[in-house]
Amino acid sequence: MGSILPNSLLWAYDFAAVGAAAMRVWDLMSDIVITTFVPGNGTHGNGRGVAFDPSDGNI
């Protein structure tokens, strides 16, 4: 299966209502999750909404 968007990273927020909440970062070239974390050193696991900020590369 080919990539849905080569050369891109995708941040996706697993929400708390179902399962364990966490942010997952996907490499869309290889279609794998490259890292998983709960934002704010584990304190913000119930979040909705994520945006990449091109001015500094943070989310």
Binding site: S3, Y13, G19, L28, V33, R48, V50, P54, S55, I59
Partner: peptide
């Protein structure tokens, strides 16, 4: 155009990296 299995995670909101 394309589909990627999200490994049964439940996802609300997504973001792509973008050029500055």
């Amino acid at each position: 155009k394309g589909t990627l299995d999200n490994l049964s995670h439940s996802v609300e909101d997504i973001s792509l990296n973008q050029p500055r």
